[in-house]
Amino acid sequence: MIDLISIALITLGGVLIGLGVHFIPVGGAPAAMAQATGVGTGTVQLAAGAGLTGLISAGFMYNFLATSGSFTTSDFILVLASGAVGAMIMITVTMFIGQLVYVYCVGVPPVSAKVDVDPITGDRQDIYVSKGTEGHGVPTVSFVSGTIGALFGGMGGSLVYVQLMQIGNAPSDPAIVALAGIFATGVFYVNAVLASYNIGGTIEGFHDPKFKRVPKAIISCLVASLLCAIIAVPIMGGVS
């Protein structure tokens, strides 16, 4: 009756979401005024935006593959990849359009205040940071980091969703689809918020010193997702 593999996979999905949040360049309110590096909104909004887009693309792929016959392991990976790509497209578009606004409307150079030299391009950073600010826009390293974050986040969200759908075992039943979707969203929000509490609201990407706090978030997300998984698995089994 207790499906240990499903519980483990849903927990893994939750941990991936928590990990992904740490990569996404979130600037919060200071970034909205171009006074900090990152996109000018909260972690939860950015992660949820990317994660939910990932869920939609994963759901589309799952529906396409599962209703047409058997659902194999390679199909499973394809759905995860679809979710990851969906989330990555969403976050890159957000960062790119945000970047256009920062550069051409606000008039600031994209620059990181946490490192002196961009670890990817090798460009000098510190001399371009305006006095009294924490950097501006989305520099290359943050952009790459955000894309990696969306990969993890989208994959984690899709993993939770697909595993719940597999337990429900009725890919075309709207009740199962809606339940799996809303549970995946619930698990997503719990993990995204825990991760954003860990980074204290703002982070630039994997080059930020705050990134070293990742292990704590992984432990927290593991416990929280495990709890959600233990609750969610019998429910999905109970509906079908």
Binding site: G42, T43, V44, Q45, Y189, V190, V193, L194, Y197
Partner: peptide
């Protein structure tokens, strides 16, 4: 992290 995070959680 802003107030919205706690409402979503």
């Amino acid at each position: 992290t802003g107030v919205p995070s706690i409402g979503m959680v």
